[in-house]
């Protein structure tokens, strides 16, 4: 009971002190204690002290004192090792399930910083024992969060056991950053449901056929491409459906990917949708995503749109 209270109180303090996108380390946010090895070292000090006292051997006694002082010095040097270091979370890159999520952290140090370990408290990853020389550096960490969904990055712990491994110096970076794990794409038929051409969109298609300037070549017909681009001349000759490609303005088709159009378990359906989104984006097509009546992404194209669709798939 009391322990719980203590822990929540500590967590509170840490949250208050370390919640920022960027923190610069100084006396109020660096924690330092002798490490396990430091405790063992202290045992050696005691042993030497007993030995020196019993043999009345000033030299052994002196060694015991030297060791004690080295431990104190280690505390100072350990503190200064992290002091002035500035940590900033730059970016968390979303990724597909079972692929690592890249976390980019920028470290700016006014001096060389030895043996810095970065670990996440929520996820299983760490980067150990790297030295950082003076100046700004960006480090990438890879975490493996688990199944599809949206996660909160939570607390990052930066620690070092410099010097001699006798002390443990650490600090936290608490960031309210969420990231998504997209469903892993599952190859499937691109069931393009061709959109009814509305008045405005019809105009768009119309306009683009008008504005072609350079005939670029022929390409195999894929479902979803406007039939107006089919080269009927070739079809008549070779019974092959070929589409005229133009440089300059390219042609885009529009699709709507619907959750209801797939069957199977939920995750598989989402994986298939993910695959479709990626394929459509690769072809530069315009697409919309419809997960349920409440959750839809309206038609669009480009990187931002793809991100939005994938995030919707993660959240669903």
């Amino acid at each position: 009971m009391r322990r719980d209270w203590l822990q929540s109180w500590l967590a509170d303090i840490i949250k208050r002190k370390h919640s920022a996108a960027q923190i610069t380390l100084s006396h109020h946010n660096i924690y330092i204690v002798p490490s396990r090895q430091g405790a063992f070292f202290l045992c050696m000090v005691t042993l030497n002290f007993i030995l020196g006292s019993n043999y009345q051997n000033n030299l052994i006694l002196g060694v015991a004192y030297v060791m004690l002082l080295i431990l104190v010095l280690a505390l100072i040097y350990g503190y200064l090792n992290l002091h002035g270091l500035s940590i900033q979370l730059l970016d968390v890159k979303n990724n597909f399930a079972e692929k690592p999520v890249e976390v980019q952290i920028k470290l700016t140090s006014p001096h060389t910083c030895y043996s810095l370990d970065v670990a996440s408290q929520g996820f299983d990853f760490s980067d150990c024992n790297s030295h950082y020389s003076q100046g700004a550096q960006v480090m990438s960490l890879f975490l493996h969060p688990g199944p599809r969904g949206r996660y909160t990055l939570g607390r990052l712990k930066l620690s070092s056991n410099y010097p001699f491994g006798l002390v443990r110096v650490w600090t936290y970076l608490n960031v309210d950053r969420t990231f998504c794990v997209y469903p892993s794409p599952l190859a499937c038929q691109l069931t393009f449901s061709e959109q009814e051409v509305t008045a405005e969109k019809g105009q768009y298609v119309h306009q683009s056929t008008q504005s072609h300037e350079n005939f670029d070549g022929l390409e195999r017909f894929r479902p979803g491409i406007s039939k107006s681009r089919i080269s009927w001349r070739h079809f008549a000759k070779s019974q092959q459906l070929l589409v005229k490609q133009y440089s300059g303005d390219s042609f885009y088709s529009q699709h709507t990917f619907d959750y209801a159009a797939h069957d199977g378990p939920k995750e598989a359906r989402l994986s298939k949708l993910c695959y479709q989104v990626l394929e459509a984006d690769k072809q530069g097509d315009e697409f919309a995503l419809r997960l349920s009546n409440a959750v839809q992404v309206t038609a669009g194209r480009g990187d931002k749109h793809r991100e939005a669709c994938l995030e919707a798939l993660s959240d669903f």
């Binding site: 090895q37 063992f40 030497n48 043999y55």
Partner: peptide, 17 residues
């Protein structure tokens, strides 16, 4: 390896005996 190094802090002063 580290535990040996730490133990050395007891082994080496024994030379003074």
């Amino acid at each position: 390896a580290m535990s040996v190094q730490l133990l050395n802090f007891f082994v080496y002063p024994c030379f003074f005996i």
